[in-house]
Amino acid sequence: MDKLFCIMLFMIIGIAGVYSAGECPKSTPDMEAMKLLPCASAAQDSNAAVSKGCCTQVKKLGQNPKCLCAVMLSKTAKSSGVKADIAMTIPKRCNLADRPIGYKCGAYILP
């Protein structure tokens, strides 16, 4: 029984380590991308209005530019039809004063 407990404990620590070692603490970019569902239309069309819910989520993620970048370039975002060049403009379109201006995100730079 003690061996089983130790194995389970190491597995839990290993899984937690994977999440905390990435760009997004305690999560993965794909999991965080799900929180940006209110941004779907704004991330596909630069003329679409950006909702308050979208701006709220982007503001939270923008506190960690590495995570925000990873989310916008994630597999989940790409498979949802997000256009990275348009998604990168959302923080500016939300008028976030503390956005990570000039942060290089892959081939893109946050304006």
Rank of each mutant, 00 (worst) to 15 (best):
A97H: 10
D98G: 03
P91N: 09
K104R: 14
V82Y: 13
P100A: 13
L110E: 02
M88N: 00
R93H: 06
A87V: 01
A97E: 11
A87E: 01
A87R: 00
Y103G: 02
I109A: 09
G102L: 10
R99C: 00
C94R: 07
K83I: 15
A107V: 12
Y108A: 05
P91W: 06
C105E: 04
D85E: 15
I101P: 00
A87W: 00
I109T: 15
L96T: 02
Y108Q: 11
C105F: 04
V82W: 14
L110D: 00
L110R: 00
C94H: 06
Y103H: 11
P91K: 07
A107D: 14
L110F: 15
G102H: 08
P100C: 07
I86K: 11
A84D: 05
P91S: 10
A87C: 02
C94I: 09
I86G: 04
I101W: 01
C94A: 14
G81I: 04
P100M: 03
D85M: 11
A107G: 09
Y108S: 01
R99N: 03
Y108L: 14
A97K: 15
P111K: 08
T89Y: 03
G102W: 05
I86P: 03
K92H: 07
D98M: 06
I101A: 10
P111H: 11
D85L: 05
P100Q: 02
I86E: 03
V82D: 01
Y103C: 06
L110N: 01
I90Q: 05
L110Y: 05
I101G: 00
M88L: 13
G106W: 12
G106K: 07
I86M: 10
Y103Q: 03
P111G: 13
R93Y: 05
Y103V: 04
G106F: 14
G106P: 12
K92P: 01
V82L: 11
P111A: 10
D98W: 02
K92A: 15
S80V: 03
S80W: 15
I101N: 08
P111L: 09
P100I: 02
C94L: 10
A87G: 06
I109P: 00
K83N: 15
L96K: 01
K104L: 06
N95L: 13
K83F: 07
D98S: 08
I90K: 07
C94T: 09
K83Y: 06
I101E: 10
A97N: 06
I109N: 04
V82C: 07
S80Q: 15
R99Y: 10
Y103P: 03
K104M: 06
K92G: 03
A107H: 12
